[in-house]
């Protein structure tokens, strides 16, 4: 049986990174959001946000849709079904980890 600290290594690092966790958490709360909203939410520069989104898109966590509103280009991002499942699993793992860390004792079996 592994301790809570060994389990930390098993967390999904793609989602757990703070900016990406903020992005996926926000996208899980809406149908879709545009690039500007996510930029304001995370405080990332355009380039850095693009890099994070590209990583998430490559992993199938988010889908990016570029469209035009009149002559203005808009970039909309949404969480995919796979992304929603991965995020739910991540939160579940974090919850379990928190629970185990609260009851963990360095000398012996978990505290009751």
């Amino acid at each position: 049986m592994t301790g809570p600290f060994e389990e930390l290594a098993g967390l999904d690092k793609l989602i757990h990174e703070p900016a990406r966790l903020a992005i996926t958490t926000a996208l899980n709360s809406c149908a879709e959001a545009d690039f500007l909203f996510l930029q304001r939410l995370t405080g990332l520069s355009k380039g850095n946000l693009s890099a994070h989104l590209s990583k998430l898109e490559a992993a199938g966590i988010v889908a990016i849709d570029k469209r035009f509103r009149g002559k203005r280009p808009e970039t909309w991002i949404r969480l995919t079904g796979e992304g929603a499942r991965a995020l739910a699993a991540h939160w579940e793992r974090l919850g379990a980890l928190r629970e185990r860390a609260n009851t963990w004792s360095p000398d012996g079996p978990p505290r009751e």
Partner: peptide, 14 residues
């Protein structure tokens, strides 16, 4: 407050 302009953060883990 939630969407306030902040200094651009460095990308970590990208």
């Amino acid at each position: 407050r939630t969407l306030r302009p902040r200094p651009a953060r460095r990308a970590s883990g990208t």
